[in-house]
């Protein structure tokens, strides 16, 4: 059985149908890329899986359990870690502090009014920061970081909950070419070694074709093609609606 099963998700904003009947699966250890032009509905779909948006219809099943519309906290506890297209981090906290927040949440220490927070889970946080390539930035406030580094913080935050599924909305936006390669390699490594499913979007086709096991093409809210990178590269419709415009 697959890790994530998404069945018939739909969502509209006023008149705009941002997602229509979106159905797909992600298996543990598998990297699935979702591509499509701007406004295709990728982020909307991610947010419905991650719990930030309530779908109009359809269901989200993680590991056999329905988490449709249960909200982001339930999704996180169920094992979904995510990054946002527009980074969302805690600007006034340090890199370690950001990651520690997630660890405190994972260990259910959110209402603890007595322990010193500074040293709490700091070692784990430092290790996670090092893992995403932020070893030298551990004690810097994230408000001062470059955009690419913020994306790394987001990844570390997502990993802090030892997720089973990673949702990554444009994880390498704002990074230099060699950094992208590195980061995607890291993600792929995590997916394989820890058997984590990864669903990601990316405008950089090189990354997509280099790392994805499976590609979904979204257009105007609907999936118009799916298959291996090779199949997608060859698909005429995809070339017409997407690659043509993106080129």
């Amino acid at each position: 059985m697959s890790l994530l099963a998404v069945n018939g998700l739909s969502k509209s904003f006023g008149g705009v149908k941002a997602a229509r009947d979106v159905t797909f699966d992600v298996a543990a250890g598998q990297l699935v890329a979702m591509i499509g032009p701007n406004g295709a509905g990728k982020s909307t779909t991610f947010s419905m899986v991650g719990g930030q948006l309530k779908p109009d219809s359809g269901e989200v099943i993680l590991d056999g359990r329905r988490i449709t519309g249960a909200g982001p906290r339930r999704a996180w506890r169920a094992g979904i870690g995510r990054t946002f297209q527009v980074t969302a981090t805690f600007a006034s906290l340090t890199v370690a502090g950001n990651i520690q927040s997630a660890l405190m949440s994972a260990h259910r220490r959110l209402l603890d009014p007595l322990t010193w927070a500074g040293p709490l889970y700091r070692d784990e946080a430092v290790a996670l920061a090092a893992r995403v390539g932020l070893a030298d930035e551990v004690d810097r406030p994230v408000g001062e970081l470059a955009y690419g580094d913020l994306k790394r913080v987001e990844l570390a935050l997502a990993l802090a909950g030892t997720p089973r599924l990673l949702l990554m909305d444009e994880p390498t936006a704002g990074m230099a070419a060699h950094e992208r390669v590195e980061l995607m390699a890291l993600v792929a490594d995590i997916a394989r070694s820890e058997n984590v499913g990864v669903l990601f979007t990316e405008h950089d086709m090189e990354s997509v074709f280099a790392h994805a096991d499976h590609v979904l093409v979204l257009h105007q809210g609907a999936i118009i093609a799916r298959g291996t990178p090779g199949e997608i590269r060859a698909d005429a419709r995809v070339r017409a609606v997407y690659l043509g415009t993106a080129a």
Partner: peptide, 28 residues
């Protein structure tokens, strides 16, 4: 400087991110 205060500030900085890592912003 406790986990409560730390995550309260986290929730202030970004409610979206806080919720996405399981912090109940309203409860904090």
């Amino acid at each position: 400087f406790t986990p409560f205060g730390h995550t309260l500030r986290a929730a202030r900085d970004s409610a979206l991110r806080a919720e996405a890592i399981g912090i109940d912003v309203r409860r904090q």
